[in-house]
Each structure stands twice: as C-alpha cells, then as structure tokens.
C-alpha cells in the first residue's frame, strides 16, 4: 500500500478502533494527532501497531515522532 488515500483510510480505520468518537477529518495535516484526538501512550502504541500491521511497514520506535501528524505518517508510510 503506497497510495496516500489508502494510508489515510488505514489511519481512519485504525483510529476507529482506538477512539471511536474521534473524527480524523477535523484534524489538520500538521496537527499533533495525540493532542488533537487526546491519545495517551497506550492509544498511540495501538495506533502504531495498527498502522504497521495494515501497511507492512515495521516503524521502529525511534521513528514515532515522524508519525505524530497526518502529513508525517502519510509521507512515512508511502515511502
């Protein structure tokens, strides 16, 4: 999966399992998702797990900061 639209859909689907009331369409591309959607450490780890499993990209821990925003995670996962 290398298409930005698919990545956004993946992020939406994964988030639905973590924060069902969260609406990704209200979050700006440069906003920190953790702040915007009130994700705690466990939520964010679960988010990474879902993105990694859904995209096949391993996502080492040191790269987490690159996935804090929508723009960042789309860029990272479409590489």
């Amino acid at each position: 999966m290398k298409n930005p639209i698919d990545i956004r859909q993946l992020a939406t689907d994964v988030l639905a399992g973590i924060a069902p009331e969260a609406d990704l369409s209200t979050v700006g591309d440069h906003e920190d998702l953790r702040e915007a959607l009130d994700l705690d450490s466990m939520d964010f780890l679960n988010f990474i797990i879902g993105l990694s499993q859904g995209s096949g990209v391993p996502i080492p821990e040191s790269d987490y900061p690159r996935l804090f925003t929508l723009q960042g995670l789309v860029a990272y996962l479409t590489r």
Partner: peptide, 11 residues
C-alpha cells in the same frame, strides 16, 4: 458505544 470496534492488536 465502543463495542464493535476491532482492536488493532487482534483485528
């Protein structure tokens, strides 16, 4: 309701 959401761990 938060049921019905698959978890990323065990989808």
């Amino acid at each position: 309701p938060r049921t019905g959401q698959s978890t990323p761990v065990n989808p």
